[in-house]
Design a protein around this nucleic acid. Structure first.
Length: 486
RNA sequence: GCUCGUAUAGUGUAGUGGCCCAUCAUGAAGGACUCUCAUUCCUUCGACCCGGGUUCAAAUCCCGGUACGAGCACCA
């Protein structure tokens, strides 16, 4: 029989995947390519991707681009998303499927549905059908014969019907307890003459398009998906799709759901809204550091490892949660601190002449814990240093790694090279080894550019550095740092 | 309104009837190290939504309540 575990051990990582067979697991992540990937999308990629890795399975990246009117696809997204996904995953998705390339497959299944009588063409308006749904009564189109349905289907396809005239429904049961499940719509018509699909070769080719629940269900089956892990807002989708699977004689994949996540600092955001704002010029692009997109996070210096650790830690609970950005940042600090060279950045620089005796130059570590990263050299010819205005107000100071200073108004005298008392330790810059620089900080939806002086360096763009006593940042160029987090 | 789901420390999470006066992380406070308000290390703080029930035993099962969220689109 079952033996009790000796001790309860804390589970680490993701929960067990039910009915998973090593090497046979197929998962998918299916965004709408109507914009770049956001922080929220990352959860889908990370969770599905980590399971695929754990089980030597496959991860499908599927573009659910079946709406050309309400959420029209963005051509650029077809190029960006695979790159963003690969960056985040650490590997390229094993398969890429584009729904708009596969319309004939969906038609084929729609026709099977009509011919076998578990689907019908409904000519009721949305309003009219709503009444049937609420009253648990059948609409007059429901009893149509397969032949009649095929005839109406032909009229949808050839344009005799216009968008809004007809829709294909899956026959479930109008008395089902859950109103969401009653004879749900599977395919509808779209005005692709005025709203062509942006992908070349697709354009205005099709008038009839599948809706998410149908397209996704058929495609999951076609692709052999074994496990679906998605937001719990799609729970009713699972129920609708399970009903459809039963009609086709298929068995539905294992499912798991996660709840809603809000980030304290960001609140709600939608891809469509971001797209409008970017197009209106409110943001510089999808990588604008104010935006909660993967591109922006990457640009700010958040590593994919940190993002993965963050999402794995949240797991796949169905709770609706609200997390502070600091949770992500603490993962990031762990990732970058060991490799981040230290640099001084003086925010409100005050120029101070040094009086008194002192060496001609001084050397300090590039990284306090890693001598192998080398030394930084500061020279005092001229004998001028830059200090933060705020620090100057504190009185006598210890220049980190250099000397004790007696501060008298705007003048400073070197009192001791050795640390002689508990005066505050501050960061500083020598005249020769510094230059004017900008620290860009994105906070509360605003971008603030702090002009100051920064230590000269030749780190390439993209290097993560730690600005002493300020926080981490990413090198944009020799005189610009994009603030990451403290 | 109907339907579905969730409820453990400030935050996030472990826990599927006894090992739990509850795990881990983060956070906060204090300390060690350090010539950074960093890193690392140590200590401390802090929670099972409420009410019933089942049981020798409940965070864990059942019922009710409450709170929050989602679906009921010819969006995804």
């Amino acid at each position: 029989m079952l033996e009790k575990r000796e001790k309860k051990e804390r589970r680490v990582g993701l929960p067990e995947l039910k009915n998973a067979v090593k090497g046979k697991v197929v998962l998918r992540f299916a965004p709408n390519p109507n914009g770049s990937l956001s922080f929220g999308h990352a959860r889908g990629i990370v969770i599905n991707g980590e399971y695929a890795k754990e089980w030597d399975g496959e991860l499908i990246l599927r573009f659910d681009d079946t709406d050309t009117v309400v959420k029209p696809p963005l051509p650029q997204a077809y190029e960006d998303i695979p790159k963003e996904a690969e960056w985040l995953l650490g590997y390229a998705p094993h398969r890429i499927v584009i729904a708009s390339d596969r319309i004939p497959h969906y038609y084929e299944h729609a026709e099977q549905m009509l011919q076998e009588g578990f689907g019908y063409v409904c000519q009721c308006s949305g309003e009219a059908f709503k009444v049937f749904r609420v009253e648990k009564t059948e609409c007059p189109c429901r009893p149509n014969s397969p032949d009649h349905n095929m005839d109406l289907w032909g009229k949808m396809l050839d344009g005799t019907f216009k968008p809004g005239d007809a829709v294909v429904r899956v026959k479930t049961d109008m008395t089902l307890k859950n109103p969401a499940l009653r004879d749900w719509p599977a395919l509808r018509m779209q005005d692709t003459a005025n709203h062509p699909h942006p992908r070349p070769g697709v354009g205005s080719t099709y008038r009839v398009w599948p809706l998410l629940d149908f397209q996704s269900a058929v495609e999951d089956h076609l692709q052999g998906v074994t496990h679906i892990i998605r937001g719990k807002d799609l729970m009713d989708s699972t129920r609708k799709q399970t009903l459809l699977y039963a009609h086709f004689g298929w068995s539905y994949p294992e499912t798991m759901y996660w709840g809603r996540v809000k980030v304290h600092e960001w609140g709600g955001f939608s891809t469509s809204q971001m797209r409008r704002d970017i197009e209106a010029g409110a943001f510089t692009g999808w990588d604008d550091p104010r935006l909660p997109t993967l591109q922006a996070l990457k640009r700010r210096g958040i590593t994919s490892e940190a993002l993965r650790a963050f999402w794995v830690e949240l797991g796949v609970t169905q709770k609706d949660i609200s997390v502070p950005l600091s949770a992500l940042f603490s993962h990031n600090t762990k990732q970058i601190d060991d490799d981040a060279p230290r640099l001084a950045f003086i925010r409100t620089p005050v120029e101070v002449h040094l009086a008194g005796d002192h060496p001609a130059q001084v050397e300090v570590d590039v990284h306090p814990n890693h001598a192998s990263m080398g030394k930084r050299t500061f020279t005092f010819e001229p004998a001028t240093v830059w200090l933060e205005e705020e620090d100057m107000a504190k009185g006598n100071l210890r220049l980190k790694g250099f000397a004790d200073l007696e501060i008298e108004k705007q003048s400073a005298t070197v009192a001791s090279i050795e640390r002689s008392d508990q005066r505050p330790i501050v960061h500083w810059l020598s005249e020769t080894q510094s230059c004017e620089a900008t620290l860009i900080v994105a906070k509360d939806g605003e971008i603030v550019e702090h002009k100051g002086r920064m230590e000269r360096h030749d780190y390439p763009e993209g290097t993560m550095v730690q600005l002493e006593r300020i926080g981490y940042g990413r090198v944009l160029d020799a005189t610009t740092i994009l603030f990451s987090h403290s």
